[in-house]
Amino acid sequence: MSIPKVHYSRLIGLLEALEDFGGKVDVAKIADDLNLELDDLLPVIEAAELLGFLRTESGDISLTNEGLEFLSDGTRGRKKHLGKKLLTLDHFKKLIEFINQKEDKSITKEELSNFLAKEFHEIDSKAVSEWTIEWGRHGLLLRYNSKEDKIKLL
């Protein structure tokens, strides 16, 4: 996984629930408690792990120190924290370089999708573009105006 492919609000929900369980719980137990199928929960766990907020060990998931820190941040603090974290991923690093090379420092959604296909060999690059925009917005890295079809750096 190159970037999270779940909604940000679901990631927050999982971390909050995990905190209620004292920071560590059996995966099946938390899935059952939240009334979710494991299939549904696994991509959220993967996303949290990718961001370093959560650790998996045999059948358990636990919050990392960074995950705890992230949770204790306020709404704005979380966004900043997330932004920093996203910048450590190759996905965003290279994308930002790419946008910066453009004359008007902006790209269209199609350009984003083509870039992801070429640079990261993403098969479903259209879907990954959507996730990129969503997470870029959450981390206050990107702006996207769908009327003008312009993705810009924030």
Partner: peptide, 21 residues
Amino acid sequence: IQEVGLEGFEDAYPRELSGGM
């Protein structure tokens, strides 16, 4: 918008948002 965590989404349209957002 800042207080409820919508910062960064000011110019997004409802179809671009998850249920939570």
